[in-house]
C-alpha cells in the first residue's frame, strides 16, 4: 500500500458516497446513467469473485464488500424507488458494444486462461469503459448539476491516482508492472480528458457544468 493507492481508493469511496448523497437529497436520479451504474455492478461482481478464493487483507476484503454492496444499492435505488425520475431516452448509449469489446479483449489477452483470470481482465477493461454512458448523457444534455460533476470527477481522479501508484510500484517493487491494469488505466483516464478540462475551468470556479 502506498499513499497514491490509498488516496485513489478513498477518492473512489468518496465518489460513491457523493452519488448516494445526491440520490437521497434530490430524491431523483435525473442526469445519472443507470447503464453506467449497471456496468459498475457487473465490474465488481466479476472482479471480486476472488473474495471466496483468497485473502489479501482486512482492508481489501472490507473495501470489496463495500463496492459490491454500494453498487447494488445504487442500482436498486435507480431501478425501484427513484425509477420515475429516470429518463431512459437520455441514457441511450448502446452498452452491448462496451460489454462485447471488454469480453473480446479479456478473452484475447488475459494473464492466464482460467475462469477467474478472464473475468478479472474483463472487469478491468469493462471498468475503463463503464463511464462512457454517463459522459454520453452529459454530452447529449450539455449539462450536469454540480454534485453529479463532483461525482464524475472523483471517479476519474481515482484511476488517475492509481496510475501514480503503478509508477511508484514500478520503482519500489522491482519493476512491478501489470500491463492489463496499465492499458485499461490509461484508456480510462484519457476518457475523462474533456470532462476534467470543463470541470476545472468551470465547476471549480463556481459555475455550472455546461458544454460550450
Amino acid at each position: 500500500m502506498n499513499i497514491f493507492r490509498l488516496s485513489g481508493d478513498l477518492l473512489h469511496l468518496a465518489s460513491i458516497f457523493i452519488l448516494i448523497a445526491r440520490l437521497h437529497q434530490t430524491k431523483s436520479c435525473a442526469g445519472i446513467s443507470l447503464k453506467t451504474q449497471y456496468l459498475y455492478l457487473l465490474v465488481f461482481a466479476t472482479r471480486y469473485l476472488d473474495l471466496f478464493l483468497g485473502f489479501v487483507s482486512v482492508y481489501n476484503t472490507l473495501m470489496k464488500i463495500f463496492f459490491l454492496a454500494s453498487s447494488g444499492y445504487i442500482v436498486y435505488l435507480m431501478y425501484s424507488p427513484l425509477k420515475a425520475s429516470y429518463d431512459k431516452s437520455l441514457d441511450s448509449f448502446r452498452v452491448e458494444y462496451i460489454i462485447a469489446f471488454a469480453a473480446v479483449v479479456a478473452l484475447a489477452f488475459p494473464h492466464k486462461y482460467s475462469v477467474v483470470e478472464v473475468l478479472w481482465s474483463f472487469s478491468i477493461y469493462l471498468e475503463s469503459l463503464a463511464i462512457i454512458p454517463q459522459l454520453f448523457q452529459m454530452t447529449r444534455t450539455g449539462e450536469a448539476d454540480n454534485i453529479t460533476s463532483h461525482y464524475v470527477f472523483a471517479l476519474g481522479g481515482y484511476r488517475a491516482l492509481y496510475m501514480l501508484n503503478w509508477f511508484y510500484r514500478y520503482y519500489t517493487e522491482d519493476n512491478y508492472v501489470d500491463y492489463i491494469s496499465w492499458i485499461a488505466g490509461i484508456v480510462q483516464t484519457a476518457l475523462y480528458g474533456d470532462f476534467f478540462y470543463i470541470y476545472i475551468t468551470r465547476v471549480l470556479k463556481g459555475k455550472s457544468f455546461k458544454l460550450p
Binding site: K64, H111, K112, E117, W120, Y162, N165
Partner: peptide, 10 residues
C-alpha cells in the same frame, strides 16, 4: 500453484 496471479489492488 506458482503461476497464480495475485491481484492485491482493488
Amino acid at each position: 500453484d506458482e503461476d497464480d496471479v495475485v491481484h492485491d489492488e482493488l
